[in-house]
Amino acid sequence: MSTTGFDYTITRTLDAPADRVWAAWTVADEYAVWASAEEVVLDVRPGGAWSSVMVIPGGARVPLTGGYVEVVENKRLVMGMNVPGRDEPVLMTLDLTADGERTQISLSQTFDTAEDRDQAEQGSNFLLDSLTTHLAAA
């Protein structure tokens, strides 16, 4: 983690094995379902790109793009998201720790401002809530 900036880490235990959680993040059709996204393209490899259109409550559509920095199957995914007005993508680190039929997931990010961090942390909690529901229904 960076020693400057505002960061957060969210850790949860999911009722699904690590390979199921990994697939939820790396298989476009599956990601689209739980992340409320359309037009999902995931090229999951270091240097690969991703894109999607997030459909937020109320029906607004937000196009998102980014790339993958680090990919360790079923363990770690470091993704960058392109943010208008920023030279460098915002990185998000996703760590998975297998525990039999359960998986501990940690999401972490660092931002320049507390406001950006708080907004991203809220969004990540929303994503993890949706992921938890999706895995429970599978």
Rank of each mutant, 00 (worst) to 15 (best):
P63I: 00
P46M: 11
P46D: 05
H134T: 14
M92D: 00
F126A: 04
E30D: 08
R86K: 15
A120I: 02
V90P: 05
G59W: 00
L91T: 02
N125R: 15
T132I: 05
E115Y: 05
E88D: 14
L64C: 10
W34N: 00
E73M: 06
E38Y: 09
A32L: 08
P89M: 01
G123D: 02
M81C: 00
G47A: 11
T65H: 14
D95G: 01
S130G: 07
I105E: 01
G59D: 03
V41L: 13
P57Y: 04
V71D: 08
T133F: 06
N125Q: 15
G47F: 13
T103E: 06
A37D: 03
D118A: 06
Y68T: 00
L128P: 05
A60P: 03
D87Q: 10
T133S: 12
W34P: 01
Q122Y: 14
S36M: 07
V72T: 13
R117F: 02
L107K: 00
N82F: 12
D43N: 08
V83W: 01
N82K: 12
A32Q: 02
G67K: 09
I105D: 04
I56P: 02
G100D: 06
Q109C: 08
V53H: 04
V62H: 05
E73R: 13
M54C: 00
Y31H: 15
V53M: 03
E30Q: 13
E101M: 03
V40Q: 10
V62Q: 12
W50M: 01
L96A: 01
T132Y: 02
A114W: 03
L107I: 06
L107Q: 02
R61G: 03
L128A: 05
I56Q: 08
G58Y: 09
E70A: 06
G100K: 07
D112W: 08
M92L: 14
S36R: 09
M79W: 15
P46L: 12
Q109Y: 02
A98K: 08
E101S: 15
M54T: 01
I105M: 11
G58A: 09
G85K: 14
W34V: 01
V40F: 13
E101I: 00
M79T: 06
Q119V: 07
V40A: 04
W50S: 01
M79H: 04
T113R: 07
T65Y: 08
D118V: 07
T65Q: 12
Q109T: 09
G123H: 08
D95C: 10
